[in-house]
């Protein structure tokens, strides 16, 4: 979805698309850093520091590190250049940057996003008696070559958006017994879990 947005934007505003791409690369770097516990979700770090940190832990391969550094340099030159940069140069950089983004997504790390922020969870298989305190959050797990979804209990006041990157955190002081839900895609009643800890991940 992020790649589509950048491509759409490039048709009318190539420079804005380049900035968006740069932000996306930085965001995905942060997600990788948090997913590999290199960084806490509430911790701040400059993109350059993050790249160094992840290189030192061998999470990013050497040419990916070099590419990220060079991309930032080129982006900065384009933004701060006093003479007008041709659209063809910007398109070339956009093209290379998108290739870099795809490469970054090949880093073998499991990333979790919100697939559905909250659906009702029931105590019975007929889906009549709803849990009052929690709802079901459907998470989407991806790592290169694999993907799956899984549903977890989360407090009703927790507010995520579809597509948010989240941390892998559960609180086993709060455990929830057997539950069912109505699958929002197929509309079929399904078992959610037999007994699980509460999901307390936060947005990255």
């Amino acid at each position: 979805a992020a790649i589509d947005k950048i491509v759409d934007l490039s048709a009318t505003e190539p420079l804005a698309a380049l900035l968006k791409l740069s932000q996306t690369l930085e965001k995905e770097l942060k997600v990788l850093a948090v997913s590999t516990a290199v960084l806490r979700s509430n911790q701040r770090s400059s993109p350059r520091q993050l790249i160094r940190l992840m290189a030192s832990k061998n999470i990013l391969p050497p040419h990916t590190v070099e590419s990220l550094d060079q991309f930032r340099d080129v982006r900065n030159k384009i933004i701060h250049e006093s003479v007008e940069i041709s659209h063809s140069t910007i398109f070339k950089v956009l093209d290379i940057g998108l290739q870099l983004l795809k490469t970054l997504r090949q880093v073998p790390v499991e990333v979790i996003t919100v697939n559905h922020p909250g659906i009702p969870i029931y105590k019975d298989e007929d889906c009549v008696e709803e849990y009052e305190e929690v709802k079901g959050i459907i998470l989407y797990y991806t790592s290169p070559g694999t993907e799956m979804t899984k549903i977890w209990p989360v407090r009703k006041n927790v507010d995520f958006q579809k597509g948010d990157y989240v941390t892998k955190d559960w609180d086993c002081n709060y455990q929830w017994g057997q539950a069912w839900y109505i699958d929002p895609v197929t509309d079929k009643k399904k078992i959610a879990w037999t007994g699980v800890c509460e999901f307390v991940g936060v947005r990255v």
Binding site: P62, H63, Q70, T89, I96, Q99, L100
Partner: peptide, 22 residues
Amino acid sequence: VELESNVEQLRETVEKAERESL
């Protein structure tokens, strides 16, 4: 000219990074 050479260098490095990730 400097920018163009930087872009070309970037393209080569990203290609290496892509091969490295396979």
